[in-house]
Nucleic acid binder design. Structure first.
Lengths: 351, 351
DNA sequence: TTCCGATGAGAGAGCGCTCTCTCATCATGG
DNA sequence: CCATGATGAGAGAGCGCTCTCTCATCGGAA
């Protein structure tokens, strides 16, 4: 167990000795170079198996000046983010796509100043070949600049705040989603429609609100807007405030499913039935939406696809040498600097 | 943006040249060696700042034969795990404690065979100095063996299945937690007490059930046990089955808060009030517990502390050179091979 | 003054790989 | 028959660090 007992791992050199070939040849075989005689390859493969050889990644990274590692930075002060299925989806998409390309994923949490400093050092240490950033909050994020300054590729999940940076991004069509939600509520006959919007410092929040506002037109009442933090608790509180101000509320758009759930709790506590008294539309269509009570009418966004697309976009720019299998869900990323994924209305029972 | 434009990062050599000293001296300064003249140190520091020097981690890892990286393996086939606040807590604890020790954390998801093979290669590539494993499922996990065989330190979060391996672990006192839940339900007068237990292939599941069973004594009815997967949905389904079999159920222990929430949904659908008709005790005390309807009586376990303790235990064995600041919540780990964290009953309204 | 130990800086090897060159071998065409 | 080119293996430099060894310098004791 003590590190001293750790059996030394075999090196290329030893494999070469055992196979009776040069280091270069072993390297060629290990890396799949085509110019190796079949019999040589066989001898090397046997030696590799026999010794359980696995290349030392540090040595390889040193000479290649590339670590085959991607960093996913979650820039979210509230660590309960992981409770949000949105992140599960992104993480799953990112890790699977990266894995398919033979890349490792490092997940970095940026919650406080200390974290940010650590990440800044991390960026400049060259430990990752590229960066993915999600849950970007305005003002709070020097990170995009740092990454770009370091000359490393960056993809943001969502629409970036800093338009001067001209950075790659993969967003969902939040504006359209907000519009769909508003239209649904209008169509089913709601007259006093409020919204529990997302945080003001996140583009996903402001974009959804913008779509909602524009589709509602003259029926939009700025007094019927309350902001939450995408969490269940904040949705509950915001809906309660809204209800107090407008007891005649009959339609509600919550900018996340979690907030919709909280809102429903608040509505019920105030004696309202959903959807009979107040219709509720959520946003995300994560796994809690379908099993909620009542099942949530919501806007579906494709989080796993978004995660995958982020990796593909990054790779298209940073590693054009890698040829990825085409995917039906993800448009080819070559030449693109941005991707906006479509969203759709999913009608269930809450509205 | 293309990698070719990437400005080459300065090396030790260049810093040395600028400061007019040798490479060795720069290395000493950067690593905080005590035997450096103050004036030299100042000159080097200035050069480091001027060039924005940051050591190349690959080079360092190569020569030190140590990567300063910890891998956290989440061995869970269902990727929605990230929706469970338990994982948020562990991840937060692990990353913060590792960060304090200057270590990076790589999160690896082991969901399918492909993932397992990738992780196996990862282990043997020496890319991490130690491994943390959570959500271990019986039978399914060759990983502990792989890690131990590679001579690397391993800490399991939870009680390990394979007792032959004599591996380090940090568990919660699940047996005691199950006992506390049973006692609470007895004390408040429940007579027909059932349980939505955790999965049979996880020690957290079986241990909680064991504590529950033992505390209930002759009031324990094996027919009133149903198993779930710690998720909300599985809890709902299990409770429904239980209720069908025992309509006179008046007490329920769910082995996770998420399952308790699902169970409450099922109970209500069947026309039962909580806690008036059926009292419910959960397990975890995660953030949904307090804000649930009704607020959950539950068993509190300290997930963030568990994550931190896992890192400390690993470090105590693998890196005795690091002296960590003592913590009040976490016992000193030197010499220990296991830690069992206390749990406690939190009484709210559901039981 | 001389000698010695302590202090602190430099020289240089080497970690495990990759990759460019070089070179040997062999088949082919003139 | 030799010249030529293709093929495939080996030699060796070097990636950016760390760390041991060596050595210069200086203060103090004899």
């Amino acid at each position: 167990m003590p590190p001293s007992v750790r059996t030394k791992r075999p090196s290329l050199e030893e494999v070469a000795a055992l196979a009776g070939v040069s280091r270069a040849t072993v390297s060629r075989v290990v890396n799949g170079a085509p110019t190796v005689d079949a019999e040589m390859k066989e001898r090397v493969d046997r030696a590799v198996r026999e010794l359980g050889y696995q290349p030392n990644l540090s040595a390889r990274a040193l000479v290649r000046n590339r670590t085959d590692t991607l960093a996913l930075v979650v820039s979210e002060p509230d660590f309960r983010v992981f409770g949000d299925p949105f992140f599960s989806g992104i993480i799953r998409g990112v890790t699977s796509e990266a894995g398919a390309a033979g890349l490792q994923v490092v997940i970095l949490l940026a919650q406080n100043d200390e974290d940010h400093q650590r990440i800044e050092r991390y960026v400049r240490s060259g430990a990752a070949d590229g960066f993915l950033l999600i849950s970007e909050h305005a003002a709070l994020d020097p990170l995009p600049r740092t990454v770009v300054d370091a000359g490393l590729p960056l993809v943001i999940g969502g629409r970036p705040h800093d338009t001067s940076l001209d950075v790659l991004f993969v967003d969902n069509d939040n504006v359209h989603g907000g519009r769909l939600a508003a239209e649904r509520l209008r169509e089913i006959g709601c007259r006093r429609i409020g919204t529990v919007a997302g945080p003001k410092d996140m583009t996903a929040g402001t974009d959804r609100l913008e779509g909602f506002r524009s589709a509602l037109g003259d029926r939009f009442d700025p007094a019927l807007v309350e902001h939450g933090q995408f969490t269940r608790e904040s949705g509950e509180a915001a809906a309660a405030r809204l209800l107090e101000r407008a007891p005649d509320l009959d339609g509600l758009f919550a900018a996340s499913d979690l907030m919709a759930l909280g809102a429903i709790t608040a509505l019920r506590r105030a004696g309202r039935r959903v959807p009979e008294d107040v219709a509720v539309v959520g946003f995300d269509d994560n796994e809690v939406a379908a099993s909620a009570d009542p099942p949530l009418t919501t806007i579906r966004q494709q989080t796993v696809v978004q995660g995958r697309a982020m990796v593909r976009l990054l790779l298209a720019h940073a590693r054009p040498d890698l040829q990825l299998a085409p995917s039906d869900a993800i448009p080819a990323a070559e030449g693109l600097t941005r991707l906006v994924l479509p969203v759709e209305l999913v009608v269930r029972e809450s509205a």
